[in-house]
Design a protein around this nucleic acid. Structure first.
Lengths: 193, 193
DNA sequence: TGCAATAAGATACACGCGTATCCTCATGGT
DNA sequence: ACCATGAGGATACGCGTGTATCTTATTGCA
């Protein structure tokens, strides 16, 4: 399995770091968050735990770095389906799908073990929703009044909470409920005040 | 400090269990979730870890049991201020206050370490909100149409998520935003369809 | 080309978790 | 009053985390 033919050469700097992130991602894919061990990552790369702790202060930080390196940012592109409803549903599905790609238990473990959700991560979802609302405004679909940040952030919060509490990404039904029962009514309400 | 004058007598059954929960609560109050140790609880009671593991399968379960035993259920009574807005704000504040009483880091730790939020816990918040809405209906303040569960559950989710993500209970400002920007508009929208 | 600075790698430690094992005390049925 | 049963209590184990310390290889600069 891992007869890891470790080179006699010592890798350093970025080369080593890439190998560590690669191995960490491999571990996550193979065994999920529960089985993820700093030790296993170190062994797979042919180095020792100290090298890892020099770069990342805790297991969660390494996992986060590995996920970032391999899964990229949460929302890649802004959908443009021609209607606000379509765009919102597309965004919700994309976000949930991204969670599934990372792996349910990895995402859940990360969210719960991290001391603080990174600022950058928190901003992604509201920004994306702001953009699809702007598109809708340009089409004259909704009014021009501002939609509060709390509304824009809500879908992301609900999806992340679902990951933590249910250990599963929201079903299509739940995503539709978020859109039709919560988000869209609020956008229309606030935008047309 | 703890010269715990342990009785030579062996306590058993409920008596022992109460002592364990008491000691666990004491530990939580004293050092928070981070400093909470199964070992410390056992020592404080003058017993050994095995006794604890016979009752609760993991640290989180013991913490949950201790919190339950000492903090009771999340929402004690349904407010009746005379207006839906008043009732909703009162409920939100009560819920947040309860979180603060348990201790921010304890609540956050619990939510994140638990595999599954207990069904019972999940139901409390929606039920309370349903009741204040019913009161508002009786006053003729809102329409009779049903308000979806997703709406009723949302405030609890937002508050719990805040505990996990920010390691803090929501500020008064945030609670007001939840009420005025999210919850109340949705209730009015759905109830009058 | 040689040598100091720096990072890699190897160990070892203390700690807490969760499990397993074995002995000992309290209890309740006879 | 006795004794089998079952729960309490002590102890040790394996594992992983995170820290600290020491040796060894690599690098880039003189």
């Amino acid at each position: 399995m891992h007869t890891d033919a470790r080179p006699a050469r010592r890798r350093r700097g970025p080369e080593l770091e890439d190998a560590l992130l690669e191995a960490a991602w491999e571990q996550l894919r193979a065994g999920g968050y529960a089985a993820f061990t700093i030790d296993a990552v170190a062994r797979a790369v042919g180095t020792s735990r100290a090298v890892i702790y020099r770069r990342w202060p805790a297991r969660a930080a390494l996992v986060l770095a590995a996920v970032r390196a391999h899964a990229g940012t949460v929302v890649g592109h802004i959908p443009d389906t021609g209607s606000l409803e379509g765009d919102v549903l597309a965004l919700l599905h994309e976000f949930a799908e991204r969670m599934r790609q990372v792996g349910i238990d990895v995402a859940a473990g990360l969210f719960s073990e991290l001391d603080e959700i990174p600022e950058e991560t928190k901003g992604v979802v509201p920004t994306a929703f702001r953009q699809v609302i702007d598109q809708a405004r340009a089409r004259g679909e909704v009014g021009a009044a501002a939609v509060p940040d709390a509304v824009l952030a809500m879908p992301g919060v609900l999806i992340r909470y679902s990951m933590i509490a249910e250990r599963a990404a929201p079903s299509d039904r739940e995503l539709q409920n978020i859109a039709h029962q919560l988000f869209l009514p609020l956008v229309r309400y606030h935008a047309s005040r």
